[in-house]
Design a protein around this nucleic acid. Structure first.
Length: 448
RNA sequence: GGCAAGUUUACCGAGUGGCUAGGUGUGUGGCUGCAGACCAUAAUACGGGGGUUCAAGUCCCUCACUUGCCUCCA
């Protein structure tokens, strides 16, 4: 299996640190507002990656941090009058509800920044002791001049950064130095005690404190959105490798591409900001999930109604095929000659840096090859195909079951359907078509 | 200004130098009383210009354009 790492900008063989164990960390949200469809894209991607690694037999431990103390939360708290901890818990809860609806359920541990203060303080102290960090009147900062490799992930060097930056009033030695600890600024903000006075942690330190605590100094995979490469992930590498003296902190850096809306960046000022909750008022979660997986996770993806509709139709075709597999999958494994090449392509595609669009194409290859011959297939052949389809559905995290819009009203519908059949037999098409039109308007599908 | 990712047919979207990607939509035919669904079939393609090669969407150079990051951001 090959995985693309941002650090080397190339695909690499996937080799874990400990046999079949994968320690996976993905940057979670800052919980100050509802999650949007861009979050959805990223977390669906990593959920699918986790599902596939587990399918391959790895024991994956997936941690996501939750930034529950931060400027945005404090600002929102001041605006709304809701205490910052209450606010953060509220949006964390809503985030997790949204993810559950998208069938994103692979995270083993949500680690809140505020639950890891001892680890954060300890890591900052060690950075100071080792001479990588220093205290000023308003905080504790990492001194980037002490770490030569700063910039290796984002491919930047310090000189370039300095030349295009406005120099603000600061107590820092170098304006690239980033905060590990921010001392209290006002009376109405949440603080924690520290050797450097009451305050709160900087943004980057929570992640490395958390990963060091659970995974140790080095681990397998770190993921997040493309926008986190600089400065966030760069800072993480810097802190952790400085404190441990070991490199690399992470073997594979995975970054998801951005989700744009109608070709533009999603932002509140452009009024094209769509939350997951809003989306799910109009669309089935699987439709969005299938839409996301129809593009490779590293590519930018453009959200539009039209594209979502295309995904809906595509998924529907898979479901109609799946419904024809009228067999029960048991414990016994079967082989089917017609399945083999498509199954192989599916897994080869997933092995190639989680190429889900290609894997989906393999499913359609199977469908096109076999859809007209299924009646002639033996039961064991059909079981083999269905077992594969079940695996694929599980890996992609979408259901291949035809969504039963008629559920719960079978008797009534059967009655209506019978009446309509009689009308048609008597060539009373005016009435039968009226029934059909009305049923379709209600969302029912009619197959004569 | 620096860094990064892109530009594939009507749309979405894969593509490891030679072999039909796939989906959606559209056309045509079939099935239908008609429409849909379903089945069959068809068409349209690699941003521009150079180069390497027997062979380039794929490698190299160059130009143009798009987007993102460089400030909180999935």
């Amino acid at each position: 299996m090959e995985i693309y790492s941002t650090l080397t900008r190339s695909k690499e063989d996937f080799k874990t640190i400990n046999d079949n164990r994968v320690n996976l960390f993905v940057c979670g949200p800052t919980v100050y507002d509802d999650a949007h469809i861009g979050h959805g894209r990223t977390y669906i991607s990593f959920d699918t990656i986790k599902r596939y690694l587990e399918f391959k037999g790895y024991a994956v431990f997936y941690i996501q941090n939750v930034t529950d103390i931060d400027d945005k939360i404090i600002n929102r708290s001041k605006e709304s009058g809701i205490p910052s901890d209450v606010l953060a818990r509220k949006f964390e809860k809503r985030y997790r509800e949204d993810m559950a609806k998208l069938n994103v359920n692979g995270v083993n541990l949500f680690a809140r920044a505020t639950d890891h203060m001892p680890e954060i303080l300890d890591q900052i102290q060690r950075l100071i002791d080792k001479g990588f960090a220093y205290e000023t009147e308003d905080g504790v900062y990492f001194e980037i001049d002490t770490f030569e490799e700063f910039g290796k992930l984002s491919n930047r060097n310090v000189e370039e950064l300095e030349s295009h930056r406005e120099i603000a009033e600061t107590t820092k030695k170098n304006h690239q130095d980033f905060a590990l600890w921010k001392k209290r600024e006002g009376v109405d903000e949440p603080t924690w005690p520290s050797p450097w006075g009451d305050g709160r942690p900087g943004w980057h330190i929570e992640d490395t404190a958390i990963t060091e605590f659970y995974f140790g100094e080095q681990y397998d995979v770190h993921g997040g959105g493309l926008d986190l490469i600089f400065p966030h992930h760069e800072a993480e590498i810097t802190q952790m490798e400085a404190v441990s003296g070991k490199s690399p902190m992470v073997r594979y850096w995975l970054h998801t591409g951005f989700l744009n809306v109608n070709g533009e960046k999603m932002s509140k000022s452009l009024h094209n900001f769509i939350t997951i909750r809003e989306l799910l008022e109009s669309y089935e979660p699987d439709t969005f999930r299938f839409f996301v997986l129809s593009t490779h996770y590293r590519s930018p993806i453009d959200f539009s109604k039209d594209s979502l509709h295309q995904s809906e139709r595509s998924l529907d075709r898979i479901r109609k095929y799946y419904e024809q597999l009228d067999v029960e999958v048991g414990d016994e494994d079967f082989e089917c000659d017609a399945l083999v090449p498509h199954k192989e392509e599916f897994f080869a595609s997933m092995d190639d840096d989680f190429n889900t669009p290609k894997a989906i194409a393999a499913i359609f290859g199977l469908i096109n090859d076999t859809k007209n011959d299924l009646d002639g297939f033996s039961e064991s052949d059909k079981i083999a195909i269905k077992a594969f389809m079940d695996d694929a559905a599980h890996i992609l995290g979408v259901s291949f079951e035809l969504q039963d819009v008629n559920a719960g009203s079978d008797d009534l519908l059967n009655l209506i359907s019978e009446v309509r059949s009689e009308l048609r037999a008597n060539k009373q098409y005016d009435l039968s078509d009226k029934i059909r039109d009305n049923l379709q308007a209600l969302g029912y599908e009619i197959n004569d």
